[in-house]
Design a protein around this nucleic acid. Structure first.
Lengths: 110, 110
DNA sequence: CGGGTTGTTGGCATAAAAGCCAACAATCAC
DNA sequence: GTGATTGTTGGCTTTTATGCCAACAACCCG
């Protein structure tokens, strides 16, 4: 494995980790319907606003959302509308039968 | 948010969490080329074999891989060949510009 | 049987994530 | 200005994840 591979895998793991929390997934789904302020998201998530604010920071650092200030309000929006789509794909993919290709490639044992 | 939503989001978070580790992503990528035994995966990951065995357990519990015993060897294979594909999608999606739809739906502030 | 190989499991130490409170900053409304 | 609203940040505790070692189980081979 090259050093570049290690970097690439690290980047992907970070991206996936930022999505891997129920509250953050809910936030993403809400933002798919349009921008929301922290208060609205907090009400939906049902946690402390400081907790939600930190979830939003995680998503921002991952490059998934962007924030804009409007007075005292912070408006958060998706950077790219395709995030939940891919999660849908992964999950629906899991319902399929085993990939046929994986049995025709020989055994994984010496 | 309904109780069913909570369940769905929890399930998805669990799935994403199981992918959100560099070593596990590497394992997934290797398995896309066909089944592998634990020893091969361990060599590629470059960690202790017990660590890799536990990573594989995480992936198995998430329903992403399946194992078959061949004598002393354990052969692991992807349950569905489409996993890395979606990770690719997410990452390439991030490189796009902001989703245009998210600015035409009004402001997220009251 | 006896020794070697291949994995798995339990246990433990360290590291990271999550969530709440308190305090603060920035803005608005009067 | 005063006070209220909206978020963010620091700090702290609790929970969870990670990774190695030791021990074990299962199998193979001579």
């Amino acid at each position: 494995m090259t050093d570049q591979d290690r970097k690439r895998l690290g980047r992907r793991a970070l991206l996936l980790k930022s999505l891997a929390h129920p509250s953050r997934l809910l936030i993403i789904e809400m933002l798919e319907h349009g921008p929301r302020c922290v208060g609205e998201l907090t009400e939906a998530v049902g946690a402390d606003i400081t907790t939600v604010s930190k979830h939003l920071l995680v998503l921002k650092r991952a490059g998934l959302v962007r924030d804009t200030k409007h007075g005292t309000y912070s408006e958060y929006a998706l950077v790219c509308g395709c995030v939940s789509h891919f999660v849908d794909c992964i999950e629906s993919g899991m319902k399929e039968e085993a990939a046929p290709g994986n049995r025709s490639k020989g055994r994984g044992v010496p």
